[in-house]
Design a protein around this nucleic acid. Structure first.
Length: 185
DNA sequence: CTATTGATGGTC
DNA sequence: ACCATCAATAGG
C-alpha cells in the first residue's frame, strides 16, 4: 500500500529524512519498476531561494501549492526529468527532490542522480501531478524500511549556488555509506 | 583525481 | 538568459 497523505503533510525536512529507505514504484506500461530511496533534498517553501516556488505560482510550480502527496516532475536542462514529492498542506509550496535510489526491480541503467533515476524508472513529465497516495496510481511510494537517524547524513544541496545564503543550508540527506548516493562526502 | 564544456529545450 | 543534470574531455 502507498504511504498515506499524513506522511507527506508534515514539515518538509522531516519528510525528506523519512523518505530514505522507502520504495519508489513506477508501473510503466504494465512493467513494475522500483528502487529504494537513498538520497533526497528538501525545498522548504517560497522563502527558500533555491525552491522553484520562490519564483511565485506559475504553470510549472502550481502543483507545489497544492496539498502534499502529489508528484512534481519537471524537465531540467532540456533533457532530464526530475522527480519530487509535494509536502505540507495546501497553500504551503514545498517539495522533496529524490536524488538517488538503489535498484530493486526493472531499473534501466544507473540510478545515482535525479535525472538518472527518472530515466531508469522511465518517469517523465507525463506523471506530473499524480497522486502518490492513490493505490491505483502508476506512481507510488511504498513503506519500505525506514532508516535509523544515526544512518542519515546531511550536507548542502547540489547545484543551487545561485540561491544566496540558502545554498549553504544543509538540506540534502542521504544514507551514510550507501553506494548509490550521487556524491560522497 | 579535479575542472571545464557541450548537449538540449521549457520556462518566464 | 537561465537552469534542483549528465557525459565526455582535458589537464595535473
Amino acid at each position: 500500500m502507498p504511504l498515506p497523505r499524513e506522511f507527506y503533510a508534515r514539515k518538509t525536512i522531516v519528510v525528506a529524512k523519512d523518505l530514505l529507505g522507502r520504495v519508489l514504484v513506477h508501473v510503466d506500461f504494465g512493467v513494475r519498476r522500483a528502487g529504494r530511496i537513498v538520497e533526497t533534498e528538501a525545498y522548504v517553501g517560497p522563502h527558500d531561494l533555491a525552491c522553484h516556488a520562490s519564483k511565485g505560482r506559475t504553470m510549472r510550480t502550481d502543483v507545489m501549492f497544492g496539498h502534499g502527496g502529489h508528484a512534481y516532475v519537471y524537465l531540467i536542462y532540456g533533457m532530464y526529468d526530475c522527480f519530487n514529492v509535494v509536502t505540507e498542506r495546501e497553500g504551503h509550496a514545498a517539495a522533496v527532490l529524490v536524488r538517488a535510489i538503489s535498484p530493486i526491480e526493472n531499473c534501466l541503467g544507473a540510478t545515482d542522480g535525479p535525472g538518472k533515476l527518472c530515466r531508469a524508472l522511465r518517469i517523465t513529465r507525463a506523471r506530473n501531478r499524480l497522486d502518490l497516495t492513490d493505490p491505483s496510481s502508476p506512481l507510488t511510494i511504498e513503506e519500505g524500511t525506514p532508516v535509523s537517524p544515526r544512518r542519515v547524513a546531511r550536507g548542502p544541496r547540489i547545484g543551487v549556488d545561485y540561491a544566496g545564503d540558502w545554498a549553504h543550508e544543509e538540506l540534502r540527506f542521504w544514507i551514510r555509506d550507501d553506494p548509490h548516493v550521487s556524491r560522497r562526502r
